[in-house]
Amino acid sequence: MSPALPLLLAAILAGVGTYGVLARRHAVLMLIGVELMLGAAGLILVTVGQFDIGQVGGDPLASGAVLTLFVITIAAAEIVVALAVVMAMFRTRGDVDLTGEAQTVEAEVPDETSPKMGEVLG
């Protein structure tokens, strides 16, 4: 079969994932975008591995497949921690909105107290 098909699908998945990361303000939904991007990476790796494009006679190290498995596993580990942090965020703030003001502990500090700037800023 033609390697262009899976590679195109990977490009589409990466683009869609990028859009998802940027367009979502719900933290968990943002994670969905990341998952799609990782999926795209996996698809590229598997495609490259299955068509032994890089080297004549195939890659003896099975780089494509092994890296895909690594990426999947790392992604799982990431998601676990990410969800825990998001839950903590939900507990402390009551929402999981990524566009919300994140920094709430320290009060806004006025700019440097140097007289020159103080005068100008009033």
Binding site: V34, L38, A41, G42, I44, L45, G49, G54, S63, V71
Partner: peptide, 17 residues
């Protein structure tokens, strides 16, 4: 995610991890 994509492209370009 970017790193993984980069790694995938690297393998695609060089044929080895």
């Amino acid at each position: 995610a970017l790193l993984a994509l980069g790694a995938a492209l690297w393998v695609a370009a060089t044929g080895t991890a």
